[in-house]
Write a protein that binds this DNA or RNA. Structure first.
Lengths: 264, 264
DNA sequence: CTAGAACCGTGTACCACGCACACAGATATA
DNA sequence: TATATCTGTGTGCGTGGTACACGGTTCTAG
């Protein structure tokens, strides 16, 4: 068997990528560049200028290397983004296992942690999830959340689905908030101003007979609220409601199942 | 007041875009191309080849025009995508208002409708939502869902948040399913095969001491299931669980509020 | 009726990006 | 020491979005 570099028969090469599972080269010059350095500067760039600031040329320039040198350590830009995604949750403060049995508080704490790192790396929510995490840091993150959810009484597969639901919800909410804030800033207004303008435009354009419910909602003055919040970024205004409803749902679900029998 | 074409002072130019609010030109040759034709062929292209098949050059070629001619009718590709997003939900079969008071059934029907059009236009879930819909079709869609949610007893703003939560959840689930199915197909396997391979790779790589919960989950043989479903695409396998939990949560929430007082 | 304003679609070009490929120098194995 | 193997470089291709100036067309004002 001559060691031919097979491109990983398909067996989840993603895992191989994220865990850095390559046999180290035996010959040739010692590499000055490293995959880690590339990912780090890419992340620094994204933190500073957003995802659209991350191009292969830009990352290379930042490092003082040629564009093509990156491809020695990373197969494609897609791979780089995957590595960035995993590394983004590296600094996540993983909650300790709880001693009281309060799984709900545990999940809430997990959500707050997630929000914290996503606020530290806003670009991360713009890289769409494509399944459960596979990298070392992503799995650590998953482990922490899964622990609490399993404690709630969910079955394993249900816990995973719920975790994905929570993760997607957090990410969507943060992404939308980011987007809206950014486009508002482009027009030189605050988020609240922009929202109010948007609401007025919609209101002018819709026919109350065709859109009775929406009209009524506008009548009630949603979107007109003053920023009653104390802090600017707040802990998690619009994120709290959906998360709480999901947790309500889980709570009701496990309670009902415990009460009733477990028929097929 | 000379009619200077102001670029819409910022007042939600998105609405103006989506509703086609431009005063018709009074001079010049009759346009042969139309915004509608552009959007239609772009959608046809996306249906056939996915979003990455949609480039300005490609759309123009399909129509038999020059690339730049499109920019007479559409300000940018971003705008084209926004128009496509709105038009995608055009064919949505909007459920009739219910006569029984079963709001939960109403919301479920709304979700099924959404899934139907998203399956008809898989690319649509890859254009990220950036807030509540603003176009005529999107608002029609919103109206239908909002009607049922308001009937449940939610406040107006809560209903909107819930609707966004549901929409995001449906879209995320469908997008992830699409993505996973596509990457599996690229490696020449079915979705189930690919998932199993992935699970095996992860399992090989993680330390049970560091990832006790995940290890246990793998031990239980999640990801190993045979496709016990009857139909191939099924109505909504992985989508049903999260949606039901959310609805459980709403139900519990409105019930609890009705029971307790409404203290601040 | 005619001049010019307003508008349509075209042609040309620019720039950014991802990446293929061949190469020169470095290095460890045989 | 010869040689296979590896590292970073340079060059260049193809594709994508879009700015800009232009010739031709149509409506309106004088």
């Amino acid at each position: 068997m001559t060691s031919e570099r097979q491109p990983t028969p398909g067996f989840a090469r993603e895992i191989e990528l994220l865990w850095g599972l390559k046999e180290a080269p035996r010959r040739g010059p010692r590499p000055k560049l490293s995959r880690e350095a590339i990912v780090d500067t890419a992340i620094a760039l994204a933190d500073a200028e957003g995802l659209e600031g991350v191009s292969m040329q830009r990352v290379a320039k930042e490092l003082g290397y040629t564009t093509m040198s990156l491809y020695r350590h990373v197969d494609s830009k897609e791979d780089l983004l995957a590595l960035m995604s995993d590394a983004a949750v590296k600094g996540m403060p993983v909650p300790e296992p709880r001693t009281d049995g309060d799984w709900r508080a545990g999940v809430e704490e997990w959500c707050r942690s997630a929000i914290t790192i996503y606020r530290a790396h806003p670009w991360a929510v713009h890289i769409p999830l494509s399944g459960p995490p596979g990298g070392p840091y992503g799995l650590r993150w998953m482990e922490a959340g899964l622990r609490e959810l399993v404690a709630s009484g969910l079955r394993a597969d249900e816990a995973i689905q719920t975790l994905m639901l929570l993760a997607c919800t957090l990410r969507d909410a943060l992404r939308i908030e980011n987007d809206m804030r950014r486009t508002a800033a482009e027009r030189g207004m605050s988020l609240e101003e922009s929202t109010r303008m948007w609401a007025q435009s919609v209101r002018r354009v819709i026919d109350p007979r065709e859109f009775p419910t929406i009209s009524r909602v506008f009548e009630e003055g949603v979107f007109e609220e003053e920023p009653t919040e104390t802090a600017d970024p707040g802990p998690a205004e619009d994120i709290d409601f959906p998360v709480q409803r999901i947790l309500d749902g889980i709570e009701a679900y496990v309670r009902d199942r415990k009460a009733g029998g477990d028929a097929p």
